[in-house]
Design a protein around this nucleic acid. Structure first.
Ligand SMILES: NC(=O)c1ccc[n+]([C@@H]2O[C@H](COP(=O)([O-])OP(=O)(O)OC[C@H]3O[C@@H](n4cnc5c(N)ncnc54)[C@H](O)[C@@H]3O)[C@@H](O)[C@H]2O)c1
Ligand SMILES: NC(=O)c1ccc[n+]([C@@H]2O[C@H](COP(=O)([O-])OP(=O)(O)OC[C@H]3O[C@@H](n4cnc5c(N)ncnc54)[C@H](O)[C@@H]3O)[C@@H](O)[C@H]2O)c1
Lengths: 210, 210
DNA sequence: CCTGCTATGTGCCCAGAATCACAATGGTAG
DNA sequence: CTACCATTGTGATTCTGGGCACATAGCAGG
C-alpha cells in the first residue's frame, strides 16, 4: 500500500488541519479557504499543506481554494475517522478518569467500550458515562466481547508492559500509552506514546538556553 | 548560541535517555551501560545516542561505556533540570487536577506554585498538595508573586488564547498547552502542545490502512 | 611494558522532508 | 468568446537528520 510512502509528519498535520477546518466551519464565514489562510491558522507553510494533500488526491479548485466542508470530510476519511473506534482503557486513576470524562473524544468518534482497574475498591464502580469498571484479570475476555480496537494505558509505568502484553493477546491493533516507559512492541500493533514530562523537559531545555 | 544547531528530536531523545537511566539506577546492577544496551531500552539506534551526546561533549569511556550516574547527571544538566521550575496552572477541571496530583512532576523538580480557575465554586478550594485555587482575574499578579516561569493551560480551547495572552504579560518564558488549539506565539515565550487527539488520529490512520 | 579487545566519537553518505518557483487551470469580467 | 487573475498542483532544489563504518582510545591480561 502507498501508506508507507507518506511521512508520519503529514498525518499529524492532517489532524491539525482538520481541527482548524472544524473551527472555520463553526465560526461560519466564507465556505472556502486558501492554503495560505489555513497555513496561518496551523502555523505551517502553505506549500506544505498543498503537498500534504497531494499525497491523497486533488481537493482544491485552482484560483479559488478549498471548500471547507468537503475538505474536512475528505481529511477525516483519509484519517479513518469515517467510522467509530472502540477504546479500552486500563488504570482508572486521575488521568484515566479525566480521559473518560472528556467530551471531545466521543465527538470525534472515539468510544470507550470498557474500563479496567486492579483496585478492588474501584471495580464495579459506574462512571458518569454509565461505563462500569471491570477487574483487570478479565481484560482479554471483556475486550473481545466489547470489540475493543485500541487500548489506552493509564497505569503506573511498572505495570504498563504487562498490560500491553495482554492487549497483544486480545489482540488490539493500536495502543495509546500514557505511562512514561518505552513499551516493547509487537507485530501488528501500533503504539503511540503521550508523554507530558518529555514536553516539559523540552521547555526546560529551551528556557535554560536563552 | 549553538543551541539552534541542535535538532529538536535530539532534545526529546535526551529526555527519554534520562528516564531509562533513572530506571537503570533504581534497578541496581552494573554501574556502566553501553550505547547498545541503552539504545535497546529506548528503541533507537546506538549511533544515534552517541551522536546526540556528541553535540554536548564527551561523556563515555571508550571500550567501557557510560557511567550511568554521571551520564544521568550530565543529561539533566543539559536539559536544565539541575534547578527547580515553577509552574502556574490554569483550568482546574479533570485534567488540571490530575496534573497537580501527579507525583512524578515534583520528583523531576517541577513545582506547581499557583493554580487558577474561573469557576466561583472552585476558587478558594485547597488541593491535596495545599495549593489554593485563585481567581483567574488575578493571574498576572499572582504569577509574578510566586515567580512562575512556565504556564500550563488546561482550560477549554476557546479560552486558551486569552489565557496565553495573560501569560505573555506576566511574562512567563514557556507554556505547556493541553487545549486543542494552535496558540498565537509571542516573542520570548516557547510553546509546547500536548495533543492526545492527534495521537489517536494517527492510530486511526495506521489502523485503517492495514 | 606491550598486545588485543571493546565500545566510543565522528566523518561521510544517503534518504526523506520542507521550501521554492512555476506551469497548469478554473473562474470571472468585459 | 476571450483575456486576465488568483490559487492550486507539482517538479526541482535545498536542507536537515539518521545510519554506517572506521579510526581512536581506554582497559585488562599476560
Ligand atoms: N496524572 C498525570 O498528570 C500524569 C502525567 C504524566 C504521566 N502520567 C502517567 O499516567 C499514568 C497514570 O497516572 P495517574 O495520575 O492516573 O495515576 P493514579 O495513581 O491516579 O492511577 C493509576 C491507576 O492505575 C490502577 N492500577 C495500578 N496497577 C494496575 C494494574 N496492574 N492493572 C490495572 N490498573 C492498575 C490503580 O488502581 C489506579 O487507579 C502513570 O503511568 C503516570 O506516570 C500521569
Ligand atoms: N480531559 C481530557 O482527557 C482531555 C483530553 C484532551 C484534551 N483536553 C483538553 O484539556 C482541556 C481541559 O480539559 P478538562 O477535561 O479538564 O475540562 P474540564 O471541563 O473538566 O475543565 C475545564 C476547567 O477550566 C475552567 N475554566 C473555564 N474557563 C476558564 C477561564 N477562562 N479561566 C480559567 N479557568 C477556566 C473550568 O472552570 C474548568 O474547571 C480542554 O481544552 C480539553 O479539550 C482534555
Amino acid at each position: 500500500m502507498k501508506a508507507s510512502k507518506i511521512p508520519a509528519a503529514t498525518i499529524t498535520r492532517l489532524s491539525i488541519y482538520s481541527r482548524a477546518l472544524e473551527n472555520l466551519l463553526t465560526q461560519g464565514g466564507a465556505p472556502v479557504v486558501s492554503s495560505k489562510r489555513l497555513a496561518e491558522l496551523c502555523g505551517v507553510n502553505p506549500a506544505q499543506i498543498r503537498k500534504d494533500l497531494a499525497y491523497f488526491g486533488q481537493f482544491g479548485v485552482r484560483g479559488v481554494g478549498y471548500y471547507i466542508k468537503e475538505l474536512l470530510f475528505d481529511i477525516r476519511k483519509i484519517l479513518g475517522l469515517n467510522k467509530d473506534w472502540n477504546l479500552a482503557i486500563v488504570g482508572m486513576g486521575n488521568l484515566g478518569c479525566a480521559l473518560v470524562a472528556h467530551q471531545n473524544f466521543a465527538k470525534q468518534g472515539y468510544r470507550f467500550v470498557c474500563a479496567f482497574d486492579a483496585d478492588p475498591n474501584k471495580i464495579g464502580h459506574k462512571l458518569a458515562t454509565g461505563l462500569e469498571i471491570s477487574p483487570v484479570q478479565d481484560l482479554i475476555e471483556v475486550c473481545r466481547e466489547t470489540k475493543a480496537e485500541i487500548g489506552v494505558i493509564c497505569t503506573p509505568p511498572e505495570r504498563a508492559q504487562e498490560i500491553a502484553n495482554r492487549f497483544y493477546q486480545v489482540p488490539v491493533s493500536g495502543i495509546l500509552n500514557f505511562a512514561p516507559v518505552q513499551l516493547q512492541t509487537c507485530e501488528g500493533c501500533k503504539i503511540e506514546n503521550v508523554d507530558f514530562t518529555v514536553k516539559l523537559d523540552n521547555l526546560a531545555y529551551y528556557l535554560s538556553m536563552s
